[in-house]
């Protein structure tokens, strides 16, 4: 683990919405090939961080280092071209379109000026099979799919263009036990294949087994960080529950 290279590093990110300080100087790093988890209660600023990294929001201050670039903020196309792939909390699916169209939204395969639907369909079947998502009818609108299948479509979209870093915001939040389990398995499978991931969750237990590194956020700040292999990691659950003032001692 020592010589894994850092592919993303953020320093001192702040973001304010009116009088709410959503992020208050967040610094963290993401190592290549590892799963980094961010856990924290609702409202601690996790989604805000993800939205900044994916180019949806511009931070008030701080910096983002990715690859060998350093920038104060990103736009969505910039984030995409830097290899950042995002699975949003709401999945960002077009419910009227089918699985194939959703997977390729924004990066369609073309044949001259025309959409190459046949090639996209073939590719989509392969992508979904790779992550073990079974969708019986790829021509059905995604509105009719189950939560797990929809998640699979969103992840397949994120994997469709080769990327460096996969961001996942609460990938299991809207799911039952069975579906969460298979989604977490899918993410573990991606890790095996070397996909770097930054996973946001409010449920430490769910990501603890999966992640290599865990950051704990509260009120827009990182209050603890640990590698899950280390002994200090055993104290994380109680840290999340403890009050902020006590946490400073770690």
């Amino acid at each position: 683990m020592m010589n894994e290279s850092i592919i993303l590093e953020v320093q001192g990110l702040t973001k304010r919405f009116g009088h709410i300080q959503a992020l208050d100087g967040v610094s963290l790093e993401v190592r290549a090939g590892a799963i980094t988890a961010i856990v924290g209660d609702n409202g601690s600023g996790k989604s805000t961080l993800i939205k900044i990294l994916s180019g949806n929001l511009r931070p008030d201050s701080g910096s983002i280092h990715i690859g060998n670039k350093t920038c104060p903020g990103l736009t969505i196309p910039q984030a995409i071209s830097l290899g950042i792939r995002t699975v949003y909390q709401d999945l960002a699916l077009d419910n009227y379109k089918n699985s194939v169209d959703n997977i390729f939204l924004g990066s369609e395969l073309m044949q001259g000026p025309f959409l190459n639907r046949r090639a996209m369909r073939r590719e989509a079947e392969k992508l979904l099979a790779d992550i073990h998502v079974a969708i019986p009818d790829l021509t059905e609108p995604v509105a009719s799919l189950s939560g797990g299948q929809r998640q699979g479509v969103a992840i397949a979209r994120a994997l469709r263009r080769p990327g460096k870093l996969l961001l996942l915001d609460e990938p299991t939040a809207a799911m039952g036990i069975q579906e969460s389990h298979s989604t977490l398995e899918m993410l573990a499978g991606l890790r095996q294949r070397g996909m770097t991931q930054l996973i946001v969750s409010h449920n430490l237990h769910q990501v603890f087994a999966l992640a290599d590194y865990v950051y704990v956020m509260r009120s827009g700040r990182v209050i603890a960080a640990a590698a899950t292999g280390d002994t200090t990691a055993q104290r994380l659950p109680e840290l999340i529950l403890r009050r902020e003032s006590e946490a400073e001692g770690l």
Partner: peptide, 12 residues
């Protein structure tokens, strides 16, 4: 019409 946010987040 279906989900403008999804389209925007795809980089379009």
């Amino acid at each position: 019409g279906g989900n403008p946010e999804a389209l925007k987040r795809s980089g379009v």
